[in-house]
Design a binder for these strands. Sequence first.
DNA 1: CACATAATAT
DNA 2: GATATTATGT
Length: 542
Amino acid sequence: MDGKINTSNQSLKNKTSFGGLNIMVVDDDIICLSIVAGILKTMKYEVVTVKNAQNALITLQQRMNFFHLVITDVHMPEMDGFEFQKKVQEKFNLPIVMMSADDKETSILRGLEAGAAFYIVKPVNYDDLRNLWQYAVSSRKVKSVVNRKFKSSQGASLVQKTSVDVDIGSAAPLNDEKQNKRDTKNKAPIKVNEGNEKEKVEIVTTKKTKVIWTTALHNRFLEAIRKIGLERAVPKRILEVMNMPGLTRDNVASHLQKYRIFLKRVTEASNSDGSSTGKNIIEKTLRSSFAVGHPSLVPRTLQHGFPQFVDHQQVGSSLQPGFLENIQMANGLGHDSALFPNQQASSSDFIPQLGYGQFHSMNNQDYFQLQTLGNTNPLYLADGADISSHQTQGISELLSNAMSNNFTAIAGSGQMGFSDGVSNGFSGSYGLRNEDNGNMALALGGNLNSGCYPQEAYSSAGFGSTNQLSPRFSNVIQQEYNPMLGNVSLPKFTEFGLDEIYLNQLNNPFYNEVLKLLAFLAAQEIHLCFINFQFDSLSDIN
DNA sequence: CACATAATAT
DNA sequence: GATATTATGT
């Protein structure tokens, strides 16, 4: 049975399309509703959004047997998520997934114990949504969910947590699924389980959890190292400091090993003289999801290319949290990614698309992202040895924050308009670059594995070439102080704007891509800070 | 097929 | 705890 399920799951997963699954999303927060719905739609789920529990119940009644899964916010006026959950389960016997910014264990447990199939802690994780279908498929048989924790076949000590799964950002289901293959091949302890306990747990788990090192988790890891001090940072200690229930020492050890390798590379890169070997190292390093600055290495790099940051941050005073973990991205956006469905662009594609290329792109975004948070230093181009005349042109920032229900676009360095800022901002790599006149030009063959192409993709996806968004953004502008940019005008991406765009622009391929990205970023609670590169020419890049 | 990553073994 | 090896996925 396990096998069967896995098989079907697998195929579904590979398609990244779960057509046929109808999901109702309930949230009084319209932004959140839009985001979640938007993401789900990119995954090809059929989504129906409802703004309050009462209407949700009515809809469920009207469309009896239509929905396969209900995902609901917990905190809602009038009827809250728990009450709603109860009714849904009683009347419709549908699996229900709760989501809330409330990550208190008591809340989570309350939801799960009441029968929720899953409890997602906001900001909503892409993988959490991506794997919703599993609950629709299995939740009937498997009582609730305490998924993976039964596992423990072996160590027993690990993975006891529940809330953490959410926290860690790795969707439990995903892990389980992935694990299965491997586990089957692997050994004993697991089998033992399969034979016996299995029945109790059915599909669920059984095996060792694969930790997905999300950005958040990785940052926590870095933070721990920073506190401890690199020299004394050993797995056990790091684990303690990280204080992430469910995470094991081994997990940390593994990650630490990888991290050290990264640091080593950075060292080599910074010591390199620009030789081809050095370039390779640099390239590899930068492509690594571990592209995290080491205090002793980053400053030089930074100062070289991004002096303005050095002033505002104590570069080198601590370990810099890094960027995006690519694992998470890879899992979430992977292959025929649903998020960027048309990203299979080849080098001969003329149509600019979001996600053009591979997930690496997303990686690099985090460079920027964390920069914004002020706890990271970017390491875009190690020492610029491989890219000759890169110089900073300006900064555009896009801050998105799903939690606070607003998107804020910041355009800095004299570029006050969001549209302008973005369109002017990115140039350089991956087939697109800015012409002197500020227009985006598509340049075939431009190809660089450094960190800027998501931005191109971004701008190319619409803002740069159309002015339609401009007015909307400029509707709401306020002065704000930004530690990096000083006083800047912040055009607000209003709720109205977001929602309206969502509703009305879904057939506009450009908006669509952009919004999907926005939604995704928001869901990831990713704060972007776009750094503008300007290369003299593409030849500089190659 | 090469590479990256996390788990696991040594 | 560090390092090497293995399994898995892209």
